[in-house]
Design a protein around this nucleic acid. Structure first.
Lengths: 144, 144
DNA sequence: GTCTCTGCAAACTGTTTGCAGGTAC
DNA sequence: GTACCTGCAAACAGTTTGCAGAGAC
């Protein structure tokens, strides 16, 4: 993990009277390196591969802290468990293939226009947006 | 529940070798009358008010069947439990107020345009769409 | 009469929490 | 040295399931 990032997180944690520990840095690193959304269990396994002492509770506790600090976002995809991804980077949304389960990301200017529309028509002030399209990916379509 | 609806459901159930029972009709009726998405627990409570003998397991079993038959949709809003709503009716999406928890529905032509865009750019064939805007509703905004 | 449904309680999965020892600062 | 952090096991919430009796067809 780069030094500037460590310091950003350290500052955030300190402002809440919390500490930066090796486990917390590890969890953050795993999420960051995946470049995609991961379920807690998977984060745990990847972290454990690096530090075999880490426990699942710590992963969950850390995820909740990172969530509170606004560093990590919790996704509710169409499954029974949650997924986590880094906040920051450009906003993006998901196309989920119901056949093979693959999750692709997309972005579109239309979403901004939709946000403006909701503001105008309903007076709604948007803070975050979740969009999931469920269907068939190009790959699975061509197989049919 | 109207006769034509009963018959639609009866036919669907029969085609799967299943039966139309009073409990199943009741669960369907509760969802239908709510005109909105309900968590399983709430469906259970409302059904129980009408038929005190119904159990939570039956509600869950029925929800799963209605889901398989394509009559009911399961939503993954930003909470720990699922919500259910009737399929059919016009497509709509959700604005969730993070302050008071109110869920409003909206629809927009922009969503269709987005669907076309994904088809064109990624070859993705959309079957269903979930959109949640999280933020402040007009009411909570004016209180600040 | 047969085969499906149901209620009950027990199991299961994902997540949270209490506690005693360990560690950052 | 003092909080805070951690692993462990136990608790928890939402959901599913096995079983024996009840009910649809």
């Amino acid at each position: 993990m780069k030094k500037e990032e460590t310091e950003k997180i350290l500052a955030l944690l300190k402002s809440e009277g919390k500490r930066l520990t090796s486990k917390r840095a590890l969890v953050y690193q795993v999420i960051q390196e995946s470049e995609s959304h991961l379920p807690a269990e998977e984060i745990y396994l990847r972290a454990k591969a690096i530090d075999p002492n880490i426990s699942l509770s710590t992963v969950y506790r850390t995820l909740n802290i990172l969530k509170e600090l606004g560093l990590v976002r919790e996704l509710h995809l169409d499954e029974e468990h949650h997924h986590y991804e880094l906040v920051g980077g450009t906003a993006h949304y998901h196309m989920i293939c119901s056949q093979c389960g693959k999750v692709e990301e997309f972005k579109s200017k239309l979403v901004e226009r939709l946000t403006e529309e909701l503001e105008k028509n309903y007076g709604f002030e948007t803070k975050s947006i979740h969009i999931d399209f469920i269907g068939l990916c190009a790959n699975c379509r061509s197989k049919t």
